Simulated assay, not measured.
Amino acid sequence: MADAQWARTEPLLPDWTPKWGGRWRDHRQVIDAVAWKSQRGSQWVHLPAGYGSWKGVCTRLRNWAIDGAWERVFTALLAQADAEGDLDRVVSVDSTVVCAHQNAAGACQKGPRPTSPTTMRSGAPAAA
């Protein structure tokens, strides 16, 4: 993470001192570890030792997701970028996520629906 990015992000992160136990690893190092993992698509256990314990990074990522820290950080960063005019909006619509209404696929035709032929158990006499 570049120094300018870190200067914007650092004040938005949760308090650096944990409620119990020892000191947390530096937030910047944890965010770099999360970025490394997401860029590589690797498993947590393959996180390089320079980023610290993979369990600690994974736990902090999960805890920040649960308490809404990531959402607050992203929302604040987007608001800052939008206010400064640094945000370009690009909309991409992919046909795999655009759903057509069910009528467009041929469902719900006008008129009565054809009924299914009645079925009977094998060996049973036919109904009159």
Rank of each mutant, 00 (worst) to 15 (best):
A69M: 02
V91L: 15
D86K: 09
A4H: 10
L77H: 04
N103G: 09
D32Y: 00
L87T: 10
A107L: 13
Q43V: 09
D26G: 05
A2G: 02
A35C: 12
W54R: 08
H46G: 06
K19N: 09
Q29A: 10
A2R: 04
K110Y: 00
M1V: 03
K110F: 00
G50Q: 15
Q80N: 04
A81R: 10
A76V: 00
W54V: 02
C108A: 11
R28I: 02
T75R: 14
G41V: 04
G106M: 04
V45M: 13
G41Q: 13
A35I: 14
A126N: 11
A100F: 02
P125W: 11
A127C: 12
G68D: 04
S92L: 11
A128N: 13
H101T: 05
H46P: 00
A100V: 09
L12G: 02
P117V: 08
R28P: 02
T75G: 06
C99P: 00
D94G: 01
T115Y: 04
A100I: 04
G68C: 02
K55S: 08
V34N: 05
W54Y: 15
R113K: 12
Q109A: 14
V34I: 15
V90M: 11
K37L: 15
N103E: 07
V34M: 15
G56Y: 03
A69T: 12
V73I: 05
H101E: 12
L77N: 03
C58R: 15
A4M: 03
S116V: 12
L87S: 08
G50V: 06
F74Q: 08
A128P: 15
V97T: 08
I31Y: 07
T115R: 14
W16T: 14
S122Y: 13
P48T: 09
G123N: 10
T17G: 01
R60N: 00
W24D: 10
N103Q: 11
R89E: 15
W44K: 10
G106C: 06
Q109W: 03
P14G: 06
L78D: 13
C108Y: 07
L13V: 01
Q80K: 05
V90W: 08
C99V: 12
S38G: 00
A83I: 01
S116P: 04
M120A: 14
V30C: 08
G106P: 03
A2S: 11
Y51P: 03
A65W: 04
E84V: 00
D26N: 14
W6Q: 07
D3R: 13
R40T: 06
R60M: 07
Q5D: 12
A126I: 14
V98E: 05
V98D: 03
C108M: 07
